[in-house]
Design a protein around this nucleic acid. Sequence first.
DNA 1: GACTGTTTGTTACCGCTAGTAACAGGTTTA
DNA 2: TAAACCTGTTACTAGCGGTAACAAACAGTC
Lengths: 216, 216
Amino acid sequence: METTRGAERQRTAAERRRRELLEAADRVVLRDGPQASMNAIAAEAGITKPILYRHFGDKGGLYRALAKRHTDALLSALRAALDAPSERRERVEATLDTYLAAIEASPQVYRFLMHPSDDSAPSPEQGFDVGRHSAPLLRRLGEELGKVIAERVDLGPESEQMARIWGHGIVGMMHAAGDWWLGDRPCSREQLVRSLADLLWGRLAEAGDLPGGQGF
Amino acid sequence: METTRGAERQRTAAERRRRELLEAADRVVLRDGPQASMNAIAAEAGITKPILYRHFGDKGGLYRALAKRHTDALLSALRAALDAPSERRERVEATLDTYLAAIEASPQVYRFLMHPSDDSAPSPEQGFDVGRHSAPLLRRLGEELGKVIAERVDLGPESEQMARIWGHGIVGMMHAAGDWWLGDRPCSREQLVRSLADLLWGRLAEAGDLPGGQGF
DNA sequence: GACTGTTTGTTACCGCTAGTAACAGGTTTA
DNA sequence: TAAACCTGTTACTAGCGGTAACAAACAGTC
């Protein structure tokens, strides 16, 4: 019986095809932005729409598969920075810098991951599904960082909840500052990293009021 | 000559109409989410599409007008909290709480403002216009907060740039944490506010390492 | 070799969207 | 009365995501 070997070969062929399709989709998204159409992606891959739909279900499926690749790559880079053997402050700065370097290196990828023109779920239900349409990458980063903080930092009672809050907060800080910085590039990356680390290190609390007007 | 009085009357009539249309759009967006169609909005207002287009140009124009109303409202609430006469820490907590209370009170509005299903600018150009597709509300909040910090806090040399960075960073922190919190509501608002303020007050730097594994 | 099922691919369509052209009636100005 | 303008309509376009129906190539089975 040739069943198993034939099936095997077909499966690997399908996987290779899928990779090819994802690479074609990647090129189109990098060229046209997140609003790239399924037609354009199919054309780039040299095929027609229904095949794309057979492989990925719907547009959201394709975009999710596409996002997962980039997200995993960024996440492992961040994990490496987070695990470097050095002082806490240095590790924080290295992590911030890794993230900023990544979004600086390929802003199109970043834009796709963060603002995916979100129609991944047409969502007929209208409950309190707020954040679900937000970029899932941010959530994932926030959760990961929260876990790392909970594992390594002593925050007293209710440590775990505070660690999760901080994880999401710090990731949000990094993201918003990076997004703004990437737009009009008002300073060097080093300066941005240092300023954000200073913020996390409590310089806001320490700084004195400026003369004139009420203090902050 | 009746010219001026007639023109006046017509202008105010047009403005009233515009307000009515915006209110109808508001209802639909609150009901259907940010992907509400122009047809649905026109139907809610009791008219047909071309009138909508005559008033607002395109969908982006309508959404921008709609967003401005809510943004202005939120912004003035935040400014009030930021100007309250009390200690810096209290003011920071009040501001965080004001923001979180607002998004808690009407998550649909929040979702519209933050994830506007961004087609406000079809953007034929494909330069480094990254953040432009992000929610403009966050940028505006970040800039405002940066200004406030620069005015009131003494940060030494290069104070202004650091203040802007901090403004965007703090707003991003507030936003990401709020977005996550609104999703699965893992703790009370007070606790969230306190934890974020603690983060800004440098507790991350002060906290000790947890035993086992490398520190953070 | 003939038969059957699965995979890969196509064309041609559906319903929906944003946006527009062209035209009809009412009111103000001259 | 006639010109100008505003408000509103119907009917259309082009493009989108998504699908049904069908054609060919290939596997394994009798």
